[in-house]
């Protein structure tokens, strides 16, 4: 554990909590992509199966349980409790493609051809692109509520901070996992346009509207 990873994890945690608060307080999941949330739930489910087989630390176990529970709670709020507020018509990204490509890549490029390792690798590839339905939705509607943009900023920052963590681990521990690093770079890269808009607009108190 190093400071980059800790801040990264806290950023990830903050993102999830911001999203739950937004939905709960407004009694609405308007502007949120249910498809991205489904993908994140699949990511956590596939990656954290090792909860049952591999104990790392209390911190690790607690965070995994929280991420799993909160992602299923988010899905419940979007597709059941507040489903009348879900903008189904704007959430039209073909997310099946992301799953198919991630499965194929995980079968081809992995550290070890075993069930748990392939599921872990699949979750890393899928996480890299899981935000695309959400970004697509914002592009389609041309705007996002400020709380949604805070959510996205925290969520995007998390993997960026993990990149610093991997650089640190490479130099200090000699640890390098190309699958995680390259996927993390892709994942962070997808947020670049959004980061630019967030810094130039939302941080100056304006709404996040896309240039026409």
């Amino acid at each position: 554990m190093n400071v980059f990873r800790l801040i990264g994890d806290m950023s990830h945690l903050a993102a999830i909590i911001i999203l739950l608060i937004k939905i709960w307080r407004s009694r609405s999941c308007s502007g949120i992509s249910g498809k991205s949330q489904l993908l994140f739930t699949a990511v956590f489910t596939c990656r954290y199966l090792d909860l049952f087989t591999n104990f790392v630390s209390i911190y690790n176990t607690t965070m995994k349980i929280f991420f799993l529970a909160s992602s299923y709670a988010t899905i419940y709020l979007i597709f059941m409790k507040f489903k009348a507020t879900y903008n189904r018509n704007h959430d039209t990204f073909r997310f099946e493609l992301l799953i198919v490509v991630s499965v194929i890549l995980a079968l081809l490029i992995n550290h070890e051809f075993s069930a748990t390792e392939i599921l872990w690798t699949f979750s890393i590839y899928l996480e890299a692109v899981a935000i695309l339905p959400q970004l697509f939705m914002i592009t389609k509607t041309g705007e996002a509520e400020s709380i949604t943009s805070h959510y996205l900023f925290a969520l995007g920052s998390y993997r960026g901070l993990y990149i610093l963590n991997w650089i640190y681990r490479y130099y200090v521990e000699g640890h390098l996992d190309w699958i995680a690093v390259l996927s993390g770079i892709v994942q962070t890269g997808l947020y670049c346009d959004f980061f630019y808009l967030y810094i130039t607009r939302v941080m100056k108190g304006k709404n996040l509207t896309l240039p026409a």
């Binding site: 990873r5 994890d9 990830h12 090792d50 591999n54 790392v56 630390s57 690790n60 965070m63 995994k64 991420f67 550290h111 070890e112 390792e117 872990w120 993990y162 963590n165 640890h175 390098l176 996992d177 190309w178 699958i179 995680a180």
Partner: peptide
């Protein structure tokens, strides 16, 4: 790469 070394990450 030891495949287990990344598994302490979230």
């Amino acid at each position: 790469v030891n495949a287990d070394d990344s598994k302490d990450e979230l």
